[in-house]
Design a binder for these strands. Structure first.
Lengths: 261, 261
DNA sequence: TAGTGGTCTAGACCACCGT
DNA sequence: CGGTGGTCTAGACCACTAA
C-alpha cells in the first residue's frame, strides 16, 4: 500500500501550501486518507470482521501523523464502515456480528425492545427481468435480470413482516432458494460473505396501506387491515443502490421505531 | 465561570493520575467539559442562536488545551446542541434558524424533497388534567395539568397531518390559542423562545391505523383510510420528556422518510 | 486585519486487551 | 508484557468571516 497524497513529504511546515494548492479539488489530508481507506475496504483488501492495520502502522505507511489517521478512522467509524475496539484494534464492520446483527431492523415491541423469537421463511426466490420501476431504483438498464425474493418474518410464531426483495442479478449469481434455506442469520450477513456485497446504508419511505387479499393471507390478517409499507433502498460503497425492499408490517403488537437527533 | 475539574493543575504530566483516580466515576476531561457546557446551555447562560465563547477563551477558563475543548464541542455539535460556523464561532442550536427549521419533520414528497406550501392551523388549545397514559409518558404525577393542542398541517392546501400534542402545564403557563395564532413558524421555535424549553431529541413509534370518523373528517379522507400513526416523545436536556405527540399522517402523496446509517 | 473554527504535527501517557 | 486504541498537550499554520 503506497499512495501519493497531495503531499508534503520533506516540507518544513506541517502540511505545506502544496497540499492546498495542488489538489484539483481541495480536501483535507485526513479526508484523503479516509477515501483511500474506503477504497481498500471496497476492494476487499480487509474483509468484514477482520482488523485493519493499526493507526501507527497506517500513519507511517501514509507518511502522516497518527492524529491525522485517527481522524480519518473516526469518520469511518461514524459512518459505521468500521468498528473501534480499545486495546484490540479497528475492525471492518460486519452484519454477522452480534453487535450490529440487525442494524437496519427497526421493529420494536410495546416495551421498546427488539422482539424475540424471530424466524425468517423464504417464500419464493426467482430470477426475472426487472420491472421498470425496480430497474430505475436499482439503476439497472431495462430488461436486466434481477433476483426476486419473497420472505416472511415472524416473531414468536406470529407473522409480522412480508418482504419483497429485488437484487441486481449480476451481483448475486448463485443465489437460490436452497442457498437461502441452508443459511440462518441476517440476509445482509449472507450477502456480505457469499457475494461480497456490503450493505452500508439505507433509505426508508414509510406509508400506510390496506392489506390486499394476497398480503393479508400471508400475514394472517383480515383483508383491508392497515399495514405499514416500508420501501427501502439499500446502498453499498459509492452510494450504489443494490437492494430494493418492499415490506408490509403488521403493527398491532410491534411498531417501527425511529430516533430523531 | 470557574469550575473544579478532577484536575491536573500544576502537575507535570499532561492530565495526571489524579484525574483518573479521584473521579468518583471516571470520565475523560473533554467529557467533563462537555457536561459543564451542557449545564450552561440548559441554564440559559447562552440563548438559542447566540454564540458561545470561543475555543481559546473556554480553554483558558477551564485551564485545559484548546484541543480538549474542541473535542467537547465536537460532541455537542454531533448531538445538535450547538452549531459550528467556520470563521464566525459556535452557536447554540435553535429551531428558528432556516438550517434546522424543521429538523424533526420527516415528511417528503415523491421526489424525496420537503413538501412546499406548508400551513399550520390550530384547531384547539386547552388545559386539562393529564390522562394516565399521557401522564406516564411525560413523567407527571397523575392529575397534573397538561396543555392539549390539536393541530392540522396542510401542504398546498391539502390536509396531511393531524397532530394531538400534550405539554406539561407547569412548563407552558401562558400558552393559549391566541398566543399560538399570533405566532408563525415551527412550534418548537415558539417553545424555545417563549417558554425556554429547547427540544433536543425525539423518539418516534410508527404504526398503521384506520381513520375513524373524527380524524377522517379533519383530514378530508374516507373513514377507514389507512393512516400512519406517529407517536412521538420529545425530550429536552437531561433526557426529560416534555412533549407527547400523536400524529395521523395521510400518506397518499407524502411519506415518512428515514435514513438508516 | 483580527478573530474564529479547521487542520496537522510530535510526543507523552493512560486504559484496555491478549499472551 | 507489548500492542492497540483513547486522551491530552503545545504549538504552528490554514480557511473563512466580518469589520
Amino acid at each position: 500500500m503506497r499512495d501519493r497524497l497531495w503531499s508534503n513529504a520533506g516540507m518544513s511546515s506541517p502540511h505545506s501550501v502544496a497540499l492546498h494548492e495542488k489538489a484539483p479539488t481541495f480536501s483535507p489530508l485526513y479526508r484523503q486518507i479516509k477515501e483511500l481507506l474506503t477504497k481498500r475496504l471496497q476492494d476487499g483488501e480487509w474483509k468484514p470482521g477482520e482488523a485493519i492495520p493499526s493507526e501507527v502502522e497506517l500513519a507511517t505507511r501514509f507518511g502522516v501523523s497518527q492524529g491525522t489517521v485517527r481522524k480519518a478512522i473516526d469518520e469511518l467509524a461514524a459512518d459505521n464502515l468500521v468498528v473501534r475496539r480499545q486495546g484490540r484494534g479497528t475492525f471492518v464492520a460486519s452484519h454477522r456480528e452480534a453487535r450490529a446483527q440487525f442494524r437496519f431492523l427497526r421493529l420494536r415491541n410495546e416495551a421498546g425492545d427488539a422482539p424475540g423469537g424471530m424466524q425468517s421463511r423464504i417464500l419464493d426466490c426467482r430470477r426475472l427481468r426487472a420491472p421498470i420501476d425496480v430497474a430505475r431504483q436499482l439503476q439497472l438498464r431495462s430488461g436486466e435480470t434481477v433476483v426476486h425474493l419473497r420472505r416472511l418474518l415472524s416473531f414468536e410464531s406470529r407473522p409480522a413482516v412480508l418482504d419483497e426483495i429485488w437484487l441486481p442479478g449480476a451481483l448475486f449469481r448463485g443465489l437460490t432458494a436452497e442457498r437461502l434455506a441452508a443459511y440462518s442469520g441476517p440476509l445482509y450477513g449472507l450477502f456480505e460473505t457469499e457475494f461480497g456485497t456490503q450493505m452500508i446504508r439505507a433509505s426508508d419511505r414509510i406509508r400506510a396501506v390496506a392489506a390486499d387479499d394476497a398480503v393479508a393471507n400471508e400475514l394472517a390478517v383480515a383483508t383491508g387491515t392497515p399495514l405499514l409499507l416500508v420501501e427501502r433502498l439499500t446502498y453499498t460503497y459509492q452510494d450504489r443502490p443494490v437492494e430494493l425492499r418492499r415490506g408490509f408490517y403488521v403493527t398491532a403488537e410491534l411498531h417501527y421505531h425511529n430516533e430523531l437527533g
